[in-house]
Amino acid sequence: MKFSLGAIQYYWPKNTVLKFYDGVAASDIDIVYLGETVCSKRRELNLQDYLDIAFKLREAGKQVCLSTMTLLESPALLREMARYIDNGEFVIEANDIGAVQLAQERNLPFIAGPAINCYNQHTLKYLVNSGLKRWVMPVELSRDWLKTLLEQEVVRDIRSCFETEVFAFGHLPLAWSARCFTARSEDRQKDQCELCCINYPKGREVHSQDGKQVFVLNGIQTQSGQRYNLINDLPSMHRLVDIVRLSPEPEGTLDWLDRFRENIRGKHPVKLAAGDSNGYWNRLAGMLTVET
């Protein structure tokens, strides 16, 4: 079982990002995804900055992948995405089917990110035939769903052609919109957002009127109010999940990596915090938690 760090979902200042990846280079993470996947207006780092980080991480022994934008609303964004895909060094994580198309046209392998709608064995096989090398399951799917899918004959035949990855820690990316909810929360229009996301390194919390945290606003993305945490579910991933993904949070992400590693066999379970959930993996509503 390998561990990966997903692309940073939030908008952090460049120096914060560089410092974060200095720590990552020194950690024992196996795979790192780099890139802006949420909002094209976030330009603290450009492609060259990400490539510079990518080379450093590769020298430190990490496998590096470049993550592409999730919601592509204009031709300019498509051109930008093509530059990521044409980087010539690193495999890309496609978060929109358009990225799959561009990779396929170039005969390049790709990783299907969690926002690609692959829900069944035949779709997975189609994508494998198109060049998929790794499949990050949609966040709303469960262990049972994954297990059933991998047991299908059409998948068993090609199981050696791809890896499986599961989003296992962090606030879940649940929706993308044309609207910027962070700008809206400051009573600004998206066109005049002044990149206010940078003031919220872990997004903005949304509470119900009786005080329960329901969502996190992260620009055009809406995340889960609960932090998804499958640390105690790791033993149930054996033989199903090749790579376990942690999503960067402003604090303590690499400490969690250590805890995850220690609990691969379930020997060092961690008591989940009130704000943690593991519902989706256990075939429940995503916000719910079961003791495992």
Binding site: T70, L71, A115, N117, Y119, P138, V139, E140, L172, L174, A175, W176, S177, A178, R179, V214, F215, T222, S224, G279, Y280, R283, L284, A285, G286, M287
Partner: peptide
């Protein structure tokens, strides 16, 4: 729908059932 359709899991997050599934 204010979210990109087919990429919104808010409903399954709260109830376990989404438009996709």
């Amino acid at each position: 729908c204010i979210m990109a359709e087919g990429r919104c899991y808010l409903s399954s997050y709260m109830t376990g059932e989404s438009p996709n599934t």
